[in-house]
Design a protein around this nucleic acid. Sequence first.
DNA 1: ACCCAGGGTCATA
DNA 2: TATGACCATGGG
Length: 223
Amino acid sequence: MRRASPLDVYEQLHAHHGDQRWWPAESPFEMMIGAILTQNTRWENVEMAISNLKKANMLNPESMLSCEPEQLEELIHPTGFFRQKAKRLIEFSRFFTAHGGTEGLKRWPTKALRARLLTINGIGPETADSILLYAFDKMVFVVDAYTKRIFSRLGMIKASMNYEEIQNYFIQRLPGLPQLYQEYHALIVQQGKCNCSAKPRCDDCPLFELCSSAAETDRLSEL
DNA sequence: ACCCAGGGTCATA
DNA sequence: TATGACCATGGG
C-alpha cells in the first residue's frame, strides 16, 4: 500500500463524517468572536458564551466597545480565561470597526490582513488563519492541535515541525480550493473530538487503515 | 481529585 | 529559538 497523502486522509474523513459546512456562526463577526473564545476551550463552552452575548444583545462591536468590561467578562465566563478574553474581544472590536468592519477588511490582500491580525494582542497564527479562512473565504490552511496530533500519529509529519512548516506541508500537497480547506479543517476537528487519535487507537477509527499502514513510523516517532 | 479542551503571551536560558 | 508558567471554566 502506498504512503497515504493528505488527500487520502481527507477522503477517509469525509466518507466517515460527511459534510461539515463550517464555521458554525450566523455572521462573519460572530465567527471571529468565536475564534477568539474557543482558544484552548471546548466549543460547547463557547456556545454558552455566544448564547449569552446574543441574549444580552452584545454580539456586535459597538456594544463590546461601549460596555463595562466586567459585563463582558460575566457573559463569556463559561469559556474560561474570561478576563484576558474580554480584553481581546474589545481590542479586536476596536480594530474591526476602525477598518470598516467585514466589508472593509474584505478588500485587504490575504497576506497583509494576516500580518495585521497577528499584531493584535491575543490573535496568534491559528486564530488569524481561522478568521481568514472562514470569515473571509481566503485560501489559508489552519493548523491546530488536532492536526499535529493526528498527522504526526499517522507518521506524515514530525512532532518537531512548527506551525508554518506543517501549514506548508499541506499547502504543497492539496489542490488550491478554499472550499476544500474549509471542509478539511472542519473534518480534522470532528475527527479530533473523537478520541480515535489518542492511544490506544479504537477499532472503528476511520483512519484505522491508514494508522495500521503507518504503524511502524508511529512506533518510531514515539521514542 | 484529576485531566484536558478547536491558543496565546510573556519571562527565562 | 525554544521551553515553561500562566490564564480559568465545564465536562469526563
